[in-house]
Amino acid sequence: MSTSPAPLPIRLLAQWRTFAPSWMILAGLAVMPLLLSSPNFIRLLFVTLLWITTSVAWNLLGGFAGQISFGFAVFYGIGAYTTALSMNAGVNPFIAFLVSAITAAAASLLVGLPTFRLRGPYFAIATIGISEAVRVVMTNLSFTGGASGYRIVEHRAFRQLDHYYTALVLASIAVAFSVFISRTRFGLGLNAIRQDEDAAAGLGVNPYAYKLGAHALAAALTGMVGGVFSRYAAFIHPQGVFGFQTSVHILLMPVIGGIATIWGPVLGGVVFGIVEEQIIASFPEIHLFIYGSMLILIILVEPGGILGAFRKLLRRIHGRR
């Protein structure tokens, strides 16, 4: 089979063809705002990149490890507030993002530690519980302004491109993580846990530690997104960043794109980033209906999402030849 046991980085380099399209997309995204400098367009790209990052992050846990969370708004919100508080205390924004990552990862243990040990639906249940509980607490917490929100004061001129490139780097990191994990022992272990936790444990995988690890990693990325968003928005409030909507969005994107794949969540993020703008703008009164029906349809018709449907189509075309 494998003739030369070359180390992973070298083998990745050898597979540059596989990644050529991704490098081209990345380069395109890097020069895009210089060519089309409409602030509104850059804002759309910025938001889409943030959505892609959360989508990829959710997929690390929900896709690879198969642990469905309905509460990623907790990490998004904690990240947003941590960055806001740190920046107002005079911390450099990029260090603030890292602090957000760490805080969010620590918060992930609050849900993971008691529930991942157990079999059954406990984790999913607890994620809904904690996101509600945290939102209510944040609405009542006085030092962050409670329900009326919190303002970030940055003593620097606002430069949209700074924010855009931060988001681009973050999204690239997330995708690189996703690619890397899917090719390592860690990813193989998560994959096995999703398919059959008992069988995985019987072959030496520690499901508890692996689920905790994937959860913490996903939370850290999501927390950083929250931080980047709060610096951009300069004003956050619990109903927004901790809102139920946020959790729904983060969960919806990877499911639409294709769960447990690398590019599915990215695709979901792109579709969502663009379509959500339109849906919310055109039909704000039925967007929940649209989200809900999409979930139901995908689960019953094509659980592989857009990517799954696309692959099936390709297979059918090849099969006819």
């Binding site: 193989l188 398919q195 059959d196 069988a199 995985a200 072959l203 030496g204």
Partner: peptide
């Protein structure tokens, strides 16, 4: 693991078994 190949099934065990093989190619071998 139905979504994996036969080799991947066994590779998982090589990775996580007592040998604790971390390198992908060594596990495959």
């Amino acid at each position: 693991f139905r979504e994996m190949t036969v080799l991947e099934n066994v590779k998982l065990a090589s990775h996580f078994g007592r040998k604790n093989v971390t390198s992908d190619s060594a596990a495959e071998e």
